[in-house]
Computed example of a mutant assay.
Amino acid sequence: MGHIAAIGEPLRILGLASAGVLLRPAEGPDAARDAWRDLPPDVDLVLLTPDAAGALGPEAVDGQEPLVAVMPP
């Protein structure tokens, strides 16, 4: 079984650590793109904050792998 990661503003994703989610804090578009690019290969699900999803663009959200979900605003 793969892992779950979260990319986005630290305050929005911090609480997910208690569920074992791999946190990739990203303040700003460049940091979000860097976090996406540096995800380990065993991540199967990525949770994105709306700002991180906007920085990554629709191709990240619409891709096949990993599965991506965008958090509500």
Score class of each variant (00 low, 15 high):
M1W: 10
G2H: 07
G2V: 06
I4G: 05
A6W: 10
I7N: 05
E9Y: 13
E9S: 11
P10F: 04
L11R: 12
L11H: 12
L11F: 10
R12P: 04
R12E: 15
R12Y: 14
L14K: 10
G15R: 08
S18G: 09
A19L: 15
G20Y: 06
G20V: 11
G20K: 05
G20P: 11
G20Q: 07
V21S: 03
L23S: 06
L23R: 09
L23K: 06
R24V: 01
A26M: 12
E27Y: 11
E27M: 13
E27R: 15
E27V: 13
G28T: 06
P29A: 15
D30A: 15
D30E: 15
A31T: 09
R33E: 14
D34L: 14
L39I: 07
P40M: 05
D44C: 00
L45T: 05
L45K: 01
V46I: 03
L47E: 02
L48M: 04
L48N: 05
T49H: 11
A55D: 03
P58A: 12
A60Y: 01
V61C: 03
D62E: 11
G63R: 15
G63P: 01
Q64K: 09
P66Y: 02
P66M: 01
L67V: 09
V68L: 00
A69D: 06
V70Q: 04
V70F: 08
V70W: 09
V70A: 11
M71D: 09
M71C: 12
M71K: 11
M71S: 10
P72T: 10
P73N: 10
P73G: 15
